[in-house]
Amino acid sequence: MKIGYARVSTADQSLDMQIDALTAAGCERVYTEKASGSKDDRVELARVMDLLRAGDMIVVYKLDRLARSTVKLISTLDEIQRRGAEFVSLNDNIDTSTAVGRAFFGMLAVFAEFERNVIVERTRAGLAASRARGRNGGRPKTDRKKVAQAVKLYDTQAHTVTEITEMTGVTKATLYRALKERQ
């Protein structure tokens, strides 16, 4: 059986192009997922791997849809081959049922990991440059005085949590965390 697997990293991305290509390639079933390729706990990929039997074929639109690191790609490919199945990447022209396809897969896996590492390095460099200019990312620092005020208002039981957050600017999560910490 030809089993298609399509993945995008974020919920606002579309799977349509991948699904169309997998359907056109003759996939009898197509499993879709919206999760980062670097995550190891992808539910639909695990489902595909559980269904995989000897003679089956996993088809993806592009190599990086399966995994982002060389180690994960190689381990996934090993598992596919151990089950007696094959792997095809449509956009990368990889077909592990051939010796050339297996060799090409190994080379592309290295480049996929290289690309991911370059993205990570660029992101870190951008954040460092931003910090050097005095801009810090992440959550704004919590004003301890406002948190203390919010806790006091909470203790009076004269206001709802929503009212307290509106009056002080302290988020519900921060208020609840402060209340939990004092116990």
Rank of each mutant, 00 (worst) to 15 (best):
L52S: 02
R53A: 15
R53E: 15
R53L: 13
A54M: 08
A54H: 10
G55I: 06
G55T: 06
D56N: 06
D56A: 14
V60D: 01
Y61D: 08
K62C: 10
L63V: 02
L63D: 00
A67S: 11
S69V: 09
S69Y: 04
T70A: 15
V71I: 05
V71E: 11
L73R: 00
L73V: 05
L73N: 00
I74N: 06
T76E: 03
D78Q: 14
D78Y: 02
E79Q: 13
E79C: 03
I80C: 07
Q81Y: 00
R82E: 11
R83Q: 14
R83H: 10
G84S: 09
A85Y: 02
E86V: 12
E86D: 13
E86W: 06
V88C: 13
V88N: 00
S89L: 00
N91I: 03
D92G: 03
N93C: 12
N93Y: 09
N93T: 03
V100R: 10
V100M: 13
G101S: 09
G101M: 04
R102F: 01
R102N: 03
R102L: 12
R102G: 08
A103N: 09
F104V: 15
F105P: 02
G106N: 05
M107D: 04
L108D: 01
L108C: 13
A112Q: 01
E113K: 01
F114C: 03
F114T: 05
R116G: 01
V118A: 05
I119Y: 01
I119M: 12
V120K: 13
E121W: 02
R122I: 09
R122K: 10
R122G: 11
R122F: 01
T123C: 04
T123E: 04
R124K: 15
R124A: 15
G126F: 00
A128Q: 11
A129N: 10
R131L: 13
R131S: 09
A132I: 08
A132G: 04
G134A: 14
G134F: 10
R135S: 06
N136V: 11
N136F: 13
G137F: 07
G138K: 05
R139A: 14
R139E: 09
P140H: 10
T142V: 12
R144V: 04
K145Q: 15
K146Y: 07
Q149C: 05
Q149F: 08
Q149A: 13
Q149N: 12
V151P: 05
V151I: 14
